[in-house]
Design a binder for these strands. Structure first.
Lengths: 164, 164
DNA sequence: TTTGAAATCGGTTGACG
DNA sequence: CGTCAACCGATTTCAAA
């Protein structure tokens, strides 16, 4: 099976230009990472060997950065998705805070941001009570975190990658 | 090759309990969706056929919802990631706005949220100038959108799925 | 870049413990 | 749930166009 290189295996990225065939390959694999190379080949009208080579090129360029199976958190009882903006005391060094945030499994994204917050996170909880404990017991207990603002996702209407 | 079922093929989700072997399978596939079933089998110490059966179970449960290859937008020149909160006029029906937002390819996430915004989005742009045009020409030009607030991601420190 | 062929390996199924 | 065996299809490599 064609397998994408891991980070440590990967060489320095090469500049790349992608054509229509590359786009078709990417679209197929963005929809289903396990689409067989031969099936892609039949779809775009060239041989599997050619798809294989193009895939190696796309991978070396860094454009394909990973392939993941996507877990539906609802099935595990995680039904609350929220965004949490974090205000840090100006005496607090952000990297320290982020180091501690990385240990909190409910935090699935964390960004340094411009605007009203020092740090902006996306979190996944079982329910609102779980979210409350996450805020009070985990996030607000980090020294330097002065306050948070929470935006609970009531319904996600769009979830997609960059358009190819 | 093992391929995950598409949405239309999938049956109604069944309740599920997952054990340690299931967790190992999931972790492998979350890291690389193209890991061969036989390799997973060698890793956890059971046959490929058994892994195959478990995978079908995990898929039917809905826990594995997709498998995607992940594109690195930077390679295509998209270097600006931002969160944009949107305020809607109370006369505007949100579904209308969302319908229009879906047509904007730079918007990769869109949520109805609690808190200060009607709608909260995640957007991907080539640079700050592109972001400015997205805000002024695309988002703010939607009728009912009264104002936006932008949080540009300066650096993403965490990006992961739910912990299994 | 693409191809076809050859060799190797993986996915899938069914019968059975 | 698990194995094994058998079949079929996919991946990978390479010489050649």
């Amino acid at each position: 099976m064609f397998q994408f290189a891991t980070k440590t295996m990967r060489q320095k990225n090469k500049p790349i230009t992608i054509d229509g065939i590359d786009k078709k390959i990417l679209r197929k694999l963005m929809a289903d990472a396990r689409t067989p190379i031969l099936e892609i080949g039949r779809h775009v009208g060239i041989s599997g060997a050619a798809i294989h080579q193009r895939l190696k090129k796309l991978e070396k360029s860094g454009l394909i950065s990973a392939s993941r199976c996507i877990i539906n958190p609802r099935i595990l009882g995680y039904t609350t998705l929220a965004f949490v903006g974090i205000h840090l005391d100006k005496s607090m060094r952000s990297p320290e805070a982020v180091k501690l945030l990385k240990r909190i499994p409910e935090i699935i994204e964390c960004h340094y941001t411009t605007g009203n917050f020092s740090i902006f996170t996306k979190v996944l909880c079982k329910n609102n009570e779980h979210l409350m404990h996450l805020l009070n017991d985990s996030i607000l207990s980090i020294s330097g975190v002065t306050s948070t603002e929470t935006f609970i996702s009531l319904d996600q209407q769009i979830d997609r990658q960059i358009k190819i």
